[in-house]
Amino acid sequence: MSALTLLDVDNLCVTLPTASGPLSAVRGVSLSLRRGETLGIVGESGCGKSMTALSLLNLLPSGAKATMSRYAFDGETVTGRGKRGIRNLRGNRIGMIFQEPMTALNPVFPIGSQLTAVYRRHKGGSEAAARERAVMLLERVGISNAAARLAQFPHQLSGGLRQRVMIAMALMCEPSLIIADEPTTALDVTIQMQILKLLADIKTAFGTGLILITHDLGVVSHVADKIAVMYAGEVVETGRTAEILAAPRHPYTVGLLGSLPDPSRTAPGAPLATIPGTVPSLIDPPDACAFADRCARVLPRCTAAAPALRQDGPGRSIRCVNPEPAAWVA
C-alpha cells in the first residue's frame, strides 16, 4: 500500500435481512482510492452501490451486516465504532453527500447551527470560529449572502441551494474523502453541472478524494478518474474511466453503454440495444457468473463456477472468462 493510498477496502460483504432470508447485497467488493482521485461506482438499481457506500460509513439500515477483511483509511486500520473507528471519521475525515438533502439536514434547526455542530463535535473550538468557517464554506459553494443564510431553515432553500449546504457541511471538517451517493440525480441539468464543477474545484483545491456513486455513465465519464461497474453485488469491471468507456470488455458494461440514447452516436428512432432478462435473486445468489443468464457470450464454464475478478491489462480488472475482444472499440 503506497503512502498516497487514502482508502483501501478488501472483500466487503453486506447482507440484508428480508422476509425470504438474508440477501447478499454486496458480495466481495474491494476498492482503493488515492488522494485527490475520483472513483465512480456505477450500476443499476439493486447492484449494491449504495450499500457499499453506506457500509464504509457504518450507516447501513438496522439488521444489515457488513464484513470486510481490510478497511484502512489514510494508512490506519478502521476498527469498530469506537474512538479509533468509524464515528471519528464520519463527518470529520470522511464527508457525505446524499441524493436528497432533506434526509441529511434537520428540518427543525437553522442551517447555521447544523453546520457549526458538525465542526465543534469533531474539532472543538468556539461557536464564533465555527460560524466563521461555515460562512466561508457557504460562500465557497456559491451561496450569496451567506451570513444571513445561517439563520434560515432547510425548507426556505431551493433544492440546488440545499445540495450546496450539504456539500458545505461535508466540507466543514476538511475531509480527505467525500462519499457522494447520487448527488445530482434530483437536480436540474444546469444545476447538476454547477454542483459537479463545484466538487471538481474542491477536489483540485483541497486534494480531496471522491467516491461518486451514480447510475449516470455520462456523469462518470466527465468526472471520474477510475470507474467500478457493479452488477448483482459484485464489481464486474474496473479501471481507468476513459479506457473502460472507450473499450468496455465485460458484456454487462457493453450492454449498459449500448442502451444509452445518444443522438451523436445512434440514429434517431433506431432501436437501442437492450439487455434481455433480469437480475438474479441475491437471496440465493447463483454459484456461477451472475450475468450468465443474460449474456450473449455465455460459455458452459460461465455457469459451472463463479468467475473471479482478474487482471485485464495495466490497472484494469474484469470478472469474465469470455470478454469482448480487446480490439473492440465503441
Binding site: V189, S221, H222
Partner: peptide
C-alpha cells in the same frame, strides 16, 4: 452543454 455524454471529459 449540460448533456454529459459518455466519452466526454471535463465540465
Amino acid at each position: 452543454a449540460s448533456v454529459l455524454s459518455v466519452g466526454g471529459t471535463g465540465l
